[in-house]
């Protein structure tokens, strides 16, 4: 009894320590740094300043924000279009098959996403797997230009983020009472009507959750666009990385980071309240 409670304390304590040391403290440092100015021989120089945030209000940053949001939004939409049918089939399939299919969804999680992005290069490049297969089948004569296109970036984003869409959708679909679908059929609705009037409205919280879980990470995933798209358009993620690693302007990068985090936090908050309302309405 005493041992187990001590074990629990240790477990919870180590989690908190981890969060404080590796997340909270670095973030506080970042937050403070965002109000400093870059130094000539040191990383930063002392003195409070809001100029970093003022610099963010510029057409260049706005344009980057716009293309980032567009990219993340389209990625979320694509994930929804691919993920909903998959989650639907998953939720309908037999209890034996479900764990296996879920496992297939989860397995890629166990590999770092940067490594998986490089693995995609192997698939997409001119003499990559996809082109070789298509040519061997005689479907194409010349290799397709897949790498360094917008398509490749979306393939990469969807591939990386799809599980975040499928899992909440699956959970939402599993929670839909099958009798409601039967009631719809009973009242004369065909499959399409039942789907759009009953299943989709009842899974709205899952749809919103999935879109948030794809959209927010996609905003910051600069490396996918870098590796697969050849960094054609600057994204917010690229901008932050460049401030830290190329221009050595740590306060500027910090300010951009903090702004983006606050924006994401606001969206999460919005989602939280929206889902709370939806759940209350869906409660029977």
């Amino acid at each position: 009894m005493k041992n187990s409670s001590r074990f629990r304390q240790l477990l919870i304590g180590s989690t908190y320590t981890w969060m404080v040391v590796l997340a909270l403290i670095p973030y506080l440092i970042l937050f403070i740094a965002s109000f400093l100015l870059p130094g000539d021989d040191q990383l930063v120089q002392s003195g409070l300043s809001f100029s970093n945030y003022q610099h963010l209000i510029s057409p260049a940053v706005f344009s980057m924000a716009r293309s980032s949001i567009l990219l993340a939004g389209v990625a979320a939409l694509l994930c929804l279009l691919v993920g909903y049918p998959f989650a639907y089939i998953l939720a309908q399939s037999s209890a034996k098959v479900q764990p296996l299919m879920l496992l297939l969804v989860m397995i890629p999680f166990w590999t770092n996403s940067l490594i998986r992005t490089y693995a995609l290069v192997m698939m997409l490049k001119a003499n990559g797997v996809i082109n070789q297969v298509l040519m061997a089948l005689g479907l194409i004569e010349m290799p397709l230009q897949l790498m360094y296109t917008q398509t490749a970036v979306f393939i990469g984003l969807v591939y990386t983020l799809l599980p975040f869409m499928i899992l909440p959708l699956y959970a939402a679909l599993k929670a839909v009472d099958p009798r409601l679908v039967e009631a719809g059929r009973d009242l004369g609705a065909n499959w399409l009507n039942t789907f759009f009037r009953i299943t989709v409205p009842l899974t709205t919280p899952g749809i919103i959750a999935g879109c948030m879980l794809v959209f927010l990470p996609a905003l910051g995933m600069f490396y996918v666009a870098d590796v697969l798209g050849g960094a054609r358009s600057m994204l917010l993620g690229n901008y932050i990385r460049d401030q830290f690693l190329i221009y050595r302007n740590i306060p500027m990068g910090a300010a951009a980071s903090v702004t983006m985090t606050v924006a994401m936090g606001l969206m999460l908050l919005l989602y939280f309240f929206a889902s709370k309302r939806l759940n209350r309405e869906a409660m029977q």
């Binding site: 009631a183 009242l187 609705a189």
Partner: peptide, 30 residues
């Protein structure tokens, strides 16, 4: 012949009312 094409309606156990619809919309569904 699927359920939606049968001139038969069901009152389900535990009612199976559509939680996202008003009483009017539930009744008007069919």
């Amino acid at each position: 012949i699927p359920p939606e094409k049968r001139a038969v309606n069901t009152v389900f156990q535990n009612y199976a009312l559509f939680p996202h619809m008003s009483v009017f919309d539930n009744v008007a569904f069919g």
